[in-house]
Amino acid sequence: MNEQTLHIGCHLSSAKGFLAMGREAVALGADVFAFFTRNPRGGRAKELDPADIEGFLAFQQEHGIGTLVAHAPYTMNACAAKENLRTFARETMDDDLNRLDHLPGNLYNFHPGSHVKQGAETGIELIAQQLNEVLHPEQRTTVLLETMAGKGTEVGRSFEELRAIIDRVEHAELLGICLDTCHVWDAGYDIQNHLDEVLTEFDRIIGLSRLRAIHLNDSQNGLGSHKDRHARLGEGEIGLEALTRVVRHPALCHLPFILETPNDAAGYAREIAMMREFASK
C-alpha cells in the first residue's frame, strides 16, 4: 500500500462554502472531507451559491479531492415517536438530497434514529418508510446508514438492524453503510482483536459492497459499552495499532476515511499525516 491510496480527511465547517472547505482540506493534507448539510443541531440550510459550486468543482479536479461525505443534522430522527419530528426528518432529507444533486456522485450519511421506546422493529419500519418516500431512481447521491453505538434506543446498533432497513427499501441500490470505528466498538464488535471476523460478519449480513465510508475514531470507552464517546487516535480503548490495521485492510483501504476525533485544525493535520505515514508502511 502506498501513501496515495489512503483517502483521509475530517469534518469541515460548510459556513463559508464549498470552495473554502476544499482549500481548508488541502491545507490540512486531506484529499476527502465531510461537512454538515446544515447546523448539526438543526435549522435551515444555507442558500447554494452556483459560483461557489463551480469554483469548488474546478478546485476539486485540480487538487485531486475525492468523494465528499455530507452529514445530516443530529436532530433528524426518522423514527421519532412524534409525527412532526418525523415530518421534519423527511423534509430535511428530501431537501438535502435535492441540494446535493448539484454535486453529483457523493455520499449522504445519516444516523438512522432513535425509536424512543416504540421498539426497534417499529423504528426500522419508520426509517424504511422515510427512505421509500424520499429516495428516487434519478438521484445522484448515495445515502449511507451509519453504524451506531447502541446508546439509549438507537436503531442501527447491529448489522442485522441495518440489513432489516435495507430489505424494506424499494430503491435499495441507492443505500450504503458508513462504518464508525468508535460506534461498532462500543456496540460490541471487537475490531481491535478480530477485525477480519467482524468484516466477514458484515459481509455475510450486509455485503461489503455496501460499505462506502469509514468514520475513523478511537473510543473513550470499552468494548460493548454503548456510550459513543470519541477519542483522538491512539488515545482511546481501540488503540492506534488496531486503527492502523483498519486503514491498511485490503477490504477497506480504498474507502474515504473521515476523522471525527475531538480536535482542532492542528490536531486533524497531525492525525491525517500520522495515518498516511502508517498506511504507507
Rank of each mutant, 00 (worst) to 15 (best):
L223A: 06
G234Q: 02
A213Q: 02
Q192C: 12
H71W: 08
T92G: 14
C10R: 02
L48A: 14
F59H: 13
M275E: 09
M1D: 12
Q61K: 15
E62H: 13
G222Q: 13
H102Q: 15
C10G: 02
L97W: 09
P50R: 05
H183E: 01
N84E: 15
D180M: 01
E201M: 04
L255W: 04
H115K: 07
C253T: 12
L48Q: 15
T200H: 11
C182K: 03
P137M: 02
D95T: 09
L208H: 07
G42Y: 05
K117P: 00
H171R: 14
S114N: 13
F159W: 02
G150E: 01
C182A: 13
Y108S: 00
V246W: 00
G222N: 11
K16G: 03
L57T: 12
R86Y: 09
R44H: 14
T181N: 08
E161F: 00
R99Y: 12
L12M: 08
A231D: 00
D186M: 03
F59K: 06
I205D: 02
L6K: 07
E201P: 01
P50W: 04
D264Q: 10
C253A: 14
T67Q: 02
A27D: 15
D49H: 14
N193Q: 15
T153D: 03
I205G: 01
H215G: 02
L195V: 06
G29C: 13
I238R: 01
L252V: 10
L48H: 13
N98Y: 03
L135V: 06
D264T: 11
G113T: 07
R23C: 11
P256G: 07
E170Y: 11
L199N: 05
G113W: 05
L57Y: 13
A78E: 10
E277I: 01
E54S: 14
A15N: 13
S14W: 14
S219C: 06
I127Q: 05
T147R: 01
E160T: 12
L243K: 04
E62Y: 11
A27K: 14
N263K: 10
P250H: 06
V246C: 08
A231M: 04
L126T: 04
D264V: 03
L259G: 02
M275I: 12
N39S: 15
L57P: 02
V184Y: 02
T153P: 09
L195C: 11
K281D: 15
E170C: 09
L199A: 00
S14F: 15
A20M: 08
V26N: 09
F257L: 05
G22L: 07
M275D: 11
G64M: 13
G55N: 06
H249L: 10
S13F: 01
N132P: 07
V116F: 10
D49T: 07
I191C: 04
P112Q: 05
Y74K: 05
N217Y: 00
H215I: 00
L107K: 03
I8D: 08
V116N: 13
G43E: 14
A266M: 12
G43K: 09
N109H: 10
L68M: 11
A269N: 13
E138V: 00
C79A: 10
P73S: 04
S13I: 04
G123Y: 03
V143P: 09
A89V: 11
D95L: 01
A265R: 15
